[in-house]
Computed example of a mutant assay.
Amino acid sequence: MSRLASTPTATDATRGLLLGLAGVVMFALSIPMTRLAGGSAEAPQLAPAFVALGRAAVAGGLSLAYLALTRARRPQGREWRLLAFTAAGVVFGWPLLLGLAVRHVDAVHASVISGVLPLATAVIAALVLRQRPSAGFWTCALAGLGLVVGFAAWRGAGALELADGLLLGAVLCASAGYVSGARLSTGLTAEQVICWVLVISLPVTLPLAVLTRPAAPVAASAWLGFAYVSLVSMWIGFFAWYRGLALGGTLRVSQVQVLQPFLSMLFAVPLLGEHLDAMTVVFALAVLAVVWWGKRQPIH
C-alpha cells in the first residue's frame, strides 16, 4: 500500500503537522505583504497588476528550473486544461483581485473576509465531485458567508464596498483553483502541479509584468513585500503545505488552515501598524469557529 493510502506513522504525522503549520504561517503573511507591496489608495506603491503578474513571473522562472532539474514528466491530455483552469484561479484571479482590494481596505479587514476560503473550497469540491454534503455542512457554509457579509457591512457603515466584492471574488477564484489543482494531484505530484501552473502562465505573466513595472521609484518596503509574495506565497509555501499534507494526512493537517486568517490579522499589526478592535476579533473568531465546525461535518 502506498504512503498516501496508508495511515501515517507517528513521526510522519508530527512532521506533516509541523510542515502544514509552517505553510499556513507563510500563507498568512500573504495579505499583509500584498498590502505592503501595493500600498494604499492614499499612498500607492507598486501597481496591483505588477504585484500579481510579477510574483507569478518570478515564481514561474524558479518553477521552470525546478521541473528541469527534477526531470518532471510533461502533463498529458486533460491535465493541460486543468492546469489552465488552476492558473486562472490561483495565478491571475486571486492575486489580482486581492491586490486591488487591499488598496482600499486594510489587511485586517481582508483577512476576515478571506477566512471563508476553506469552506468555499469545500463547497466547490462538493459540487464538482457531485458529493452530498450534510445539512450541517451547508448550515456552516451559509453561516460563514453571512458572517463575512455582516462584517463587511458593519465596517462599511451599513453598505458593502467594491473592495468586499473583489475579496469575495478572490476567494471564489482561489477555491476553484485549489479544487482543480487537487484533481491534478492524482497524476502529478503536488509540487509539480504548482510548478506547471506557473510555467504555463509565463508567456502571459512575464511580458505583462515587464509592461506594468513601476516607472517611478517606490519604497524599499514595497519591494520587500513583493519579494515575499513572489518567493514564499507563490512558491516555497506550497512546497511546505503540500508536503505536510502528504506526510501527515490531508484531513488531519488541513485543520490548521483555520488559523490562517487570524494569523494574518496578527501579522498586520506590527508589519503595517494596523489596529485590531474588539468587534473585528469577535467576527474573526466566529468565522474561525464556523470554518472549523464545517470541516468536521460529513460529506457523502
Rank of each mutant, 00 (worst) to 15 (best):
A174W: 15
L266Q: 02
W235Y: 11
G136R: 12
T70D: 07
G23S: 05
L208W: 10
L82I: 11
A41S: 04
T34G: 01
L188N: 04
R130D: 14
G244L: 07
V290K: 03
P95Q: 00
W94A: 00
P261L: 04
M26I: 13
A107E: 01
G165C: 07
R252N: 06
L288S: 11
F262C: 13
R81C: 09
L67V: 10
L18G: 08
S40C: 05
G177A: 04
G144F: 05
R74C: 13
L117P: 04
G156P: 04
L53Y: 12
C195E: 05
R296L: 12
G244W: 04
Y242S: 11
W196Y: 07
S40K: 07
G225C: 00
L247D: 10
Y66F: 14
Q255A: 13
P217V: 00
R296Y: 14
M234C: 12
T34I: 00
A141H: 01
V148R: 06
I200A: 08
L119E: 01
T250D: 12
M234Q: 15
Q297I: 01
R296H: 15
G54L: 01
W80P: 03
L266F: 00
V229L: 02
L97G: 01
P95H: 01
A87K: 06
V102R: 01
S114G: 09
A110T: 05
A65Q: 08
H275V: 08
A268R: 09
E161K: 12
T280G: 04
Q131M: 08
S185A: 13
L167Y: 12
S180I: 06
R183Y: 15
V210L: 14
A52D: 03
P261H: 02
G146P: 08
F137P: 09
G249H: 02
G38P: 06
V128D: 08
V282K: 03
A87F: 09
A56Y: 05
C140V: 09
P214E: 05
I31L: 03
I236A: 15
S180K: 08
A174R: 15
A57W: 15
V197S: 07
E79V: 06
F85N: 11
R71Y: 00
P298N: 06
F137G: 03
G225P: 02
G273S: 03
A157R: 14
G144C: 08
M265K: 04
L198H: 14
I236M: 14
Q297N: 10
H104K: 11
A227W: 04
G61N: 07
A87G: 10
Q76T: 14
S233T: 05
Q257A: 15
E42D: 12
Y228G: 07
P48T: 10
L46V: 09
P203N: 09
L46S: 03
L188H: 09
A59H: 06
A52M: 00
L46F: 00
V253K: 03
R15K: 10
A56H: 08
M1S: 13
L29V: 00
A22S: 15
R243G: 07
M234Y: 12
A209H: 03
A84Q: 13
R3M: 14
H300N: 15
